[in-house]
Amino acid sequence: MIKKTVPNVESALKGVADGMTFMLGGFGLCGIPENAIAELVKLGINDITCISNNAGVDDFGLGLLLQKHQIKKMISSYVGENDEFERQMLSGELEVELTPQGTLAEKCRAAQAGFPAFYTPAGYGTEVAEGKETREFDGKMHVLEPAFKADFSFVKAWKGDEAGNLIFKGTARNFNPCMCGAAKITVAEVEELLPAGSLDPNEIHIPGIFVQRIFKGYDYEKRIEQRTVRKK
């Protein structure tokens, strides 16, 4: 067994530096690597490029890095209700590459799986396709999209073991599995870190080969953006 455990978030983020490109899992605030984000804020590194579906909210998730102007460029599909993200984008302080969500996920997966690029119909005929190679397949137009290149992937899983195997929970899975092994170094933070052999190999979502460092995260806030309920 090849051991991937590191003692804490500090050792997990060893090697991050100004100007790097990071992938960060999560959809809204669901399944975001809370510990890694907090550490990036603490380290104060700047000019970073973040590949993440959203940019958190004003005061949580990637919003914390935006507040401190540590992010040079965001590659996302949705700005949504993050006012600071929208403000920095419209004022030109922040470079933003808006990418269709399915294309964003596949650009991660392509990097993981060793495809240099792929064709997708998404965005054809829109400004997303401007300057990109297009090609017709079966009478339909497609856009060529390159795989992402990143220095670190920061993902959050529910359970993991010493070998780096991961299991995700609910919709907190989202982009996390697609980003594993899609950067030079993948850092996984987990709620439960177990000895090798504790997880059933049949139930592993991401094999440890895609993960370089794994640590047990702590103090998960798991903030809910839209608490919707019905009466009993």
């Binding site: 959809f27 809204g28 605030l29 669901c30 399944g31 579906n53 969500q101 399915g102 964003l104 996920a105 596949e106 991660c108 997966r109 529910w158 995700f168 929970k169 609910g170 919709t171 907190a172 899975r173 989202n174 982009f175 996390n176 599995p177 697609c178 979502h205 798991k222 903030r223 809910i224 953006e225 839209q226 608490r227 919707t228 309920v229 019905r230 009466k231 009993k232």
Partner: peptide, 30 residues
Amino acid sequence: PFEGEEDADVINAGKQTITTLPGASFFDSA
């Protein structure tokens, strides 16, 4: 979900807390 049964790890694309029905499945974005 019923009040008190919300799970931060189970939401829809509008980031609203939801439930799943029998036969449901979860999967990654790709």
